[in-house]
């Protein structure tokens, strides 16, 4: 146990939030922000660090990330200034970003936050996109709820 505990302690001491994107890493700026192989023109906005990890697990997204640190919630008193929204706007303002992907959860608060951010950044010349909602891979239709099925139908696309 000794080496493991010492390793965990070392990680705990060195962990910090990335000043650019809000990710958690042992270096600041974080490994993703300083990685030259990443496409700096594409930026994916997520609620929590765990969402970043989920998306980055298999390098699904080639660009960089921005972690908000939560989602807007009037009832819980989580306001825009409590989240990394101003830093996001500044990142986009600086330029060099072509696309912003809003990868919020499909909850009411997640979608409200996505809508809020879209409005805040619509004045910039960037393409604003959102994750699709619908049929999960390997999912069977008769097990899906009506809301998900409706979303999947609305977002149907031509077979190429």
């Amino acid at each position: 146990m000794g080496p493991l505990l010492r390793a965990l302690e070392a990680v705990n001491e060195r962990l910090e939030s990335c000043a650019i994107c809000g990710n958690v890493d042992t270096i600041n700026p974080c490994g993703i922000c300083v990685d030259p192989r990443r496409d700096a023109r594409a930026l994916c906005v997520v609620e929590e660090v765990s969402d970043l990890w989920a998306l980055d697990r298999s390098r699904l997204f080639p660009g960089k990330f921005h972690v908000l640190g939560g989602r807007l919630s009037a009832l819980e008193g989580i306001r825009p200034e409590d989240l990394g929204i101003d830093t996001l706007v500044r990142r986009i303002e600086v330029g060099g970003i072509d696309e912003v992907v809003l990868a919020m959860n499909a909850t009411l608060e997640g979608q409200t936050t996505a809508h809020y951010i879209a409005e805040r950044i619509e004045r910039f010349p960037v393409r604003i996109t959102q994750l699709a909602h619908g049929l999960p891979v390997g999912g069977e239709l008769d097990y899906l709820d009506e809301g998900t099925l409706a979303q999947a139908l609305r977002a149907r696309r031509p077979v190429s």
Binding site: L72, S73, A74, P80, T112, T113, H115, Y116, E119, R120
Partner: peptide
């Protein structure tokens, strides 16, 4: 969304119009 909007509207000062707009869209 309505509860959240009511709460924002009840706050002192001018509530964030973009936030209200996002809730109204929902």
């Amino acid at each position: 969304a309505m509860r959240a909007r009511n709460k924002l509207l009840a706050e002192e000062g001018r509530p964030d119009p973009v936030w209200l707009g996002a809730l109204e869209a929902q």
